[in-house]
Design a protein around this nucleic acid. Structure first.
Length: 476
RNA sequence: GCCCCCAUCGACUAGUGGUUAGGUCACCACUCUUUCAAGGUGGUAGCAGGGGUUCGAGUCCCCUUGGGGGCGCCA
């Protein structure tokens, strides 16, 4: 049984990189008919916030990554929050201590840094295993000073092979791994220890995570072995970078799932785009339905090299899905924006909803983001926002003259259909000797406020006689 | 400083010793068209560098360079 997990820290909104890790875990699990576990790593008391945990779950659900076990829905291997599992870590650590696999260390950060400096080593070269063989006397002395020890893992002198599903075999020498802390002096576990205990006890079969953890994996393997626990399979996926190939951060623009969600991306577009980062089929297909992705996904086809997140391609893909979906759904999803823009209110009638659906359908191929919907369809119900440039260019004296001249033919239009409207306007052009553009452009601007929009006659037809005449009068 | 990973168009990628190095985004041109889009057609653009191995290297090996990551009482 394949069991994978996604284990975020609730210290901020779900990051794009993490979203990708979650997605790959999800796809892998679903592809293998396995289980996808959500675990919250909230042992960092200062930075972890309940509201972020909530947001994390909302955003995951938003783009369709749903878990089979997690803090909100439970499961057979809970609890699923690390702060609720502290006794588990403590017990496991006690056992290792009794077995001599970990030891108490009383050094402060300053002391180890100082020793490193004196021996000419780099400050970040790690712990020097100073407290490995403390005597009873030493311990008593430190304890009487009131020092609180940390628990350090006694790294065995062996090399560790990581058999990575993406990277193949990677070997690490123990000499490059200093004894590391597993329990802090306040009794809380360090990340590396908590993950191992959790993965073990939650029976995680495959650990799929970012490459940033590859160098830490030998530590994890040593811990699994010290615990007598089975070592899971590992797959370290490439990292997600920004345009300049550095780690994705604020200065690259939006980096949280929340931001894309609020900008009006469609969840299926986001899902599809993210799946393409560091993974591809032999055909390099790039449009997939959720089901297709689940069916075709495989860890073996994950790339080893880092991937640059390209917001432009995401935007293109969103437009594609926007064109594919129904106007009804677009309207429904953009309702909050429309309300905010004062274009629609609460409790609109069924008739208005259908009217707006039609308006959306006329503009659908141009809509790239939900938040742009008000801009595209606002003029159908509200007085147009007249764009200065458009007015200046087309609603000139001559333009207004044309509008005044054509007004009667609209007033006299009995059957308000696209065909009639077009025939009428064309007839007008011919009779008065206007070129089409001389009439079409002023009409469009007077009615919509913009130089771009739906087909002119579809637009007029949908606007209706009343609004059309009222707006034309205003400009003639 | 030490350790690890990676390297095909600007970006995402296909490629697993013999290819005119393919697709997608972006870009450019043309086309369609009342506008803007969308669509269609075509195009610009790539194997980081140097050594090997081989009849033959984008594909295998080594070095260099570049990029990323790790080495915390953060996760």
């Amino acid at each position: 049984m394949v069991r994978v997990r996604f284990a975020p820290s609730p210290t901020g909104y779900l990051h794009l990189g993490n979203a990708r890790t979650a997605l790959f875990n999800y796809l892998f699990a679903k592809n293998k008919n396995g289980r996808f576990v959500l675990r919250i790593e909230d042992t960092d008391a200062e930075r972890s916030k309940k509201e972020y945990e909530k947001a994390l779950m909302e955003d995951l659900k938003w783009f369709g990554v749903e878990w089979d076990e997690g803090p909100d829905i439970g499961g057979d291997f809970g609890p699923y929050r690390q702060t609720e599992r502290l006794s588990l870590y403590r017990n496991a650590a006690e056992k290792l201590l009794a077995e001599g696999k970990v030891y108490r260390c009383y050094c402060t950060k300053e002391e180890t840094d100082e020793r490193n400096r004196k021996s000419g080593k780099n400050e970040s070269s790690g712990y020097d295993n100073h407290c490995r063989e403390l005597s009873r006397e030493d311990i008593n002395k430190f304890e009487s000073e009131g020092r609180k020890p940390v628990l350090r893992f006694r790294v065995p002198p062996v090399s560790v092979k990581v058999n990575d599903m993406i990277r193949g075999e990677v070997v690490f020498e123990a000499e490059n791994i200093p004894d590391f802390v597993i329990i802090k002096s306040d009794g809380l576990p360090i990340f590396h220890f908590a993950v191992v205990i959790d993965d073990w006890q939650m029976k995680i079969s495959h650990v799929v995570r970012g490459e940033d953890h590859l160098s830490n994996t030998p530590k994890h393997i040593m811990l699994f072995e010290a615990l007598g626990a089975p070592v899971p399979q590992f797959a370290h996926m490439s990292m997600t970078l920004g345009r300049d190939k550095t780690r994705l951060s604020k200065r690259h623009g939006a980096t949280s799932v929340r931001a894309y969600r609020e900008d009006g991306y469609l969840p299926e577009a986001f899902f599809n785009y993210i799946s393409l980062l560091g993974w591809a089929t032999a055909e390099s297909q790039d449009i997939f339905s959720r089901e297709e992705l689940i069916e075709k996904f495989s860890i073996e086809r994950c790339n080893k090299s880092n991937a640059v997140f390209d917001p432009e391609k995401l935007l293109w893909m969103n437009g594609l899905y926007m064109r594919k979906t129904s106007p009804e759904r677009i309207l429904k999803l953009s309702l909050p924006c429309l309300k905010e823009a004062g274009i629609m209110g609460d409790g609109e009638t069924e008739e208005t909803m259908r009217y707006m659906e039609k308006a959306v359908s006329l503009e659908q191929e141009k809509i790239k983001l939900l938040k742009d919907v008000p801009y595209h369809v606002g003029f159908f119900v509200k007085e147009p926002v007249y764009e200065e440039k458009a007015v200046k260019k087309h609603l000139t004296e001559k333009g207004k003259e044309v509008l005044g001249a054509i007004l009667p033919s609209f007033e006299g239009c009995e059957e308000w259909t696209i065909q009639n409207l077009e025939a009428g306007v064309r007839k007008f052009c011919e009779e008065k000797g206007y070129k089409a553009g001389e009439v079409f452009h002023p009409l469009r601007v007077a009615l919509s406020g913009k130089t771009t929009g739906p087909g002119l006659f579809e637009m007029i037809e949908h606007l209706g006689k009343e609004k059309t005449i009222q707006r034309l009068k205003k400009w003639s």
